Simulated scan of single mutants.
Amino acid sequence: MPELTVTNVNKTFNGSQVLHDINFTVHDGEFFTLLGPSGCGKSTTLSCIAGLDRPDTGTIALDDVVFFSGRNSTFVPPEGRNLGMVFQSYALWPHMSIADNLALPLSLRKVPKTRRNELIDDALDKVDLLHLRSRYPHEMSGGQQQRVALARALVYSPRVLLLDEPLSNLDAKLREQARAWLKGLQASVGITTIYVTHDQEEALAMSDRIAVMAAGRMVQIATPTEIYDRPAAREVASFVGSCSFLDGRVVRADTTEAHVELLGSGQVVHATGTFDVRAGDSVAVAVRPERVTITSPGHMVSPGTNLIRAHVDSSSYVGARYEYLLSIGAAQIAANCLTPNHDGEVDLAIEPENLFLYPQKTLITV
């Protein structure tokens, strides 16, 4: 049962540190995603696992096989790790047929010729391309080339599959179809998979767990539901999904709830959860737009629900909903609503558990 562990991995390029003490474990059969914006270190992390980049310090191991150890200078080259990798560009040989592209890694591993065709056909059958084994890459669509690259990574039965933004070259509709197909294939094959993407929707839809990265650091590792519903840091809340942030000052608090005065308006909101804040602390109060309900001033709500007076600045119809921007003093907040024609002064109803609190500090740009 392969379990991949990355421990205290650091990496520097040209004097600039791009990975800072990266730690995570990927369990057997898990679909594990590294999520973050360009430049956050996710592809470098994947390259270190693949052996394409060598870390400065730390350890990378698959079960009891150590691929890299900074302590004793262990470094297993890529060809010795038995990992499958699909690149963003697919990296197919244009002068080779699809079958020959798949035969190449088998030849390098000295698989007998009598066995190669069987493995090639099996891999192409998994990605529904067996009938196109004689075609060349330029004779195939982008989606088909993506599946060929995946088949080539699977043909020699790697212990772990590494995917570096493999869907990014597809158009939006095909990408949506491909991610469902890819997740289904991964589950049916049962292979441990590490997936790199900057697409938060893709990560939420496909992953068993997600590691959100920012500026070369792991910010939160959790299930998609936990990442979205309880972002552990402001960096996560601001990158995964949409959030409004309001400046506030804690009036009173304990470990499970806090009352916060919103700066500029003087209104006080009540948040529940697990907080590490004290009275007098400056905080950012965050809320997702779909968790904000627009009501008429004086409208009755359930006891404990926050009511915040706001002014409608603008609204946009985007098909499935209306998106509103509202002002609370000098601050702005977004709200999604199914109904039109909200204007002027309104009340915003927000449940205490839907407010996130984060200490005011320098934000890692994502």
Rank of each mutant, 00 (worst) to 15 (best):
F68V: 04
E165T: 10
T256E: 04
P94S: 10
L204I: 14
A271E: 06
H299G: 00
A215R: 14
E202W: 07
S16M: 04
N117L: 14
I120H: 11
H299Y: 07
R234P: 00
A284G: 13
I191S: 08
A178L: 04
T25C: 10
S134K: 13
R152D: 12
R133F: 05
M1V: 10
P77E: 12
S265Q: 09
L161T: 10
V312E: 01
H299Q: 15
L62P: 11
F31A: 11
G329W: 02
P289E: 06
G344V: 00
L124R: 06
L108M: 15
E261Q: 14
E202P: 10
E139D: 12
L167C: 05
V292H: 05
S327F: 00
G80N: 07
R309K: 10
M96K: 13
S302N: 13
P55Y: 07
G273I: 05
V250S: 03
S141T: 13
D63I: 12
Q146V: 11
H138T: 06
L174N: 04
V18N: 02
M140Q: 09
N354D: 14
R109F: 13
K110H: 14
L162M: 06
G344N: 00
Y90I: 08
E351S: 03
L4K: 10
V219W: 03
A172D: 03
G344Y: 03
S134N: 15
E257H: 04
T197A: 12
V283H: 02
A123W: 07
A334F: 05
D122T: 13
D347W: 12
A258I: 03
L182A: 11
L102G: 12
S38Q: 10
D347N: 13
G216S: 11
A258F: 02
T5L: 07
T256C: 01
A310Q: 01
W93N: 06
I333F: 03
D122C: 00
A232Y: 08
E257D: 09
T12D: 09
L106E: 08
V236Q: 02
Y156E: 06
E139T: 09
I221Y: 10
L102V: 11
I191C: 11
R321E: 11
K42W: 06
L325K: 06
N169R: 06
V260P: 02
H270F: 01
E226K: 06
R115C: 01
F31Y: 15
L162H: 10
A258C: 06
S43E: 12
K361H: 15
V160L: 09
L150V: 12
G319V: 07
F245P: 05
H20K: 13
E165N: 05
G39E: 11
S97C: 03
I194C: 09
P77A: 09
P340W: 03
L182P: 04
R81K: 13
